[in-house]
Design a protein around this nucleic acid. Structure first.
Length: 99
DNA sequence: CGGTTGACCAAGT
DNA sequence: GACTTGGCCAACC
């Protein structure tokens, strides 16, 4: 793919509010295993307000990091209806899967 | 073109 | 449960 990052953002846009996805799952949606590169893409995030990069969490259910601080990310997720406990998220309830 | 880096993951200790 | 190791892939220098 020519624009790997662009695809990441495009797919991330599909995640409904109140749910989260994982880096691994997102990479799989891209038909790739570059979950690491996906993380890098989110870190860059040139479309800051447009792309909900805070809706991407670790596969273990942990919130992961965030450009503006992890605490901020947790706050945002809670504002959207995602219940975050001790920096972790219940993927069984809030995890969104593509395809 | 080779080496480094990173919002990661899985398995091992 | 936490910490370490090796692997993974794209972008950057």
């Amino acid at each position: 793919m020519r624009n790997f990052y662009e695809e990441c953002y495009n797919i991330l846009k599909k995640v409904p509010k109140g749910k989260v996805t994982t880096y691994k799952n997102l990479a799989r949606a891209l038909n790739s295993k570059a979950y690491r590169a996906v993380g890098t893409a989110m870190n860059k995030n040139p479309y800051a307000p447009k792309i909900p990069c805070h809706r991407v969490v670790n596969s273990d259910g942990k919130a992961g990091k965030f450009a503006h601080g992890t605490a901020k990310k947790v706050k945002m997720l809670r504002s959207e209806g995602v219940d975050v406990v001790d920096g972790k998220i219940d993927l069984k309830k809030f995890g969104f899967k593509f395809r």
